[in-house]
Computed example of a mutant assay.
Amino acid sequence: MMNKLNMGQKALRASLLLLSAATLAACNGPAAPAPDARPPLEGARIGGPFTLTDQNGKTVSDSDFAGKYRLVYFGYSFCPDICPVDIQKLMLGLSQFEKADPARGAKIVPMFVTIDPARDTPAALKPFVSRYHPRLLGLTGTPEQIAAVAKAYVVSYHKVEGSAPDRYLMAHTQLAFLMDPAGKPLALLPLDDPSTDSDEGAPDKVAADLAKWVK
């Protein structure tokens, strides 16, 4: 099952990254996007309405973020390696962009959506997201709510049984989306292949992509 998901995840990432290839090269400074730049995910059927619960127990919906860019990553707080590394890269990149251009940086809402709602309660998410960025939202919900939002974002996941009922892992698609102020997809943010060690400069690449698309 793990191999099957990994193969499917690689194929999905490859397809989306072909669209998003232009966003993956680092650039110097927080340059504004070119007037004629076309977002690589423009027109893709990714995202949609949702109602979830944040790390403070507050009900939030997609409409709460109207007018804001959204950085959206799916994972889970009990993830032993990939999710924490990805989130650290993304949030370091966001912090770098915020420092270079505070006005544009403030327009971005970073979101961590769990695919493990059974364990990722608001109380569990709160200390997790606070490690990475002061504005990072941790979002959870019922299994049905999570399944719906994951499907909308073309994210697949499944449980991998462990040595005890509460020691399972969650295999999931590894993607980070940048959505525009209307909730439409702009681009994938660069996440390195977990099978390699080529993660040098990843926060710089994230910051460069944010500089390219956030107006």
Rank of each mutant, 00 (worst) to 15 (best):
K151C: 11
G93M: 06
T53C: 14
L17E: 14
T51Y: 02
Y73A: 06
G8Y: 03
G162Q: 15
Y168H: 14
Q9D: 13
P134V: 04
A106N: 09
K58A: 14
D64F: 06
F112K: 06
K99H: 12
L169D: 02
L178R: 07
S77F: 05
L24I: 03
L137E: 01
L16K: 02
A152V: 01
L94K: 05
G8D: 10
V85T: 11
S156P: 02
P143Q: 09
G57E: 07
L94C: 10
N56I: 02
Q9P: 04
A118C: 03
D204H: 09
N28V: 01
V154N: 15
L41I: 03
Q96P: 06
Q96E: 10
P181I: 03
T23R: 07
L92C: 09
G201A: 09
L71Y: 07
L71Q: 06
A164M: 07
F128W: 11
F112Y: 11
P122R: 01
F177D: 08
K99T: 00
F50A: 08
D180L: 02
V113E: 05
M7D: 12
P84S: 12
Y69S: 01
A207R: 08
L19E: 01
V60D: 06
S198G: 10
P122T: 09
A26S: 14
D86N: 15
K68E: 11
K212R: 15
L139Q: 04
D166S: 12
L175E: 07
S95F: 08
L17P: 02
S130W: 07
M170D: 01
A148W: 05
L92R: 04
G75K: 05
H158S: 14
L175D: 05
A208E: 02
T140I: 09
Y168R: 10
P102Y: 06
R104K: 13
A182D: 13
D101H: 07
Y153E: 03
R38Q: 12
L94V: 00
V109W: 08
N3F: 11
A26P: 05
S61G: 13
G57N: 08
D166W: 07
P40F: 09
E98Y: 08
P194N: 04
A123H: 03
K151A: 13
G141W: 02
D180C: 02
P190K: 08
P35C: 09
F78C: 04
L52E: 05
A118V: 00
V109T: 10
S195W: 01
I82Q: 14
L24H: 15
R119S: 13
P33K: 02
Y168T: 00
P84M: 13
L139N: 04
A207G: 06
P40Q: 08
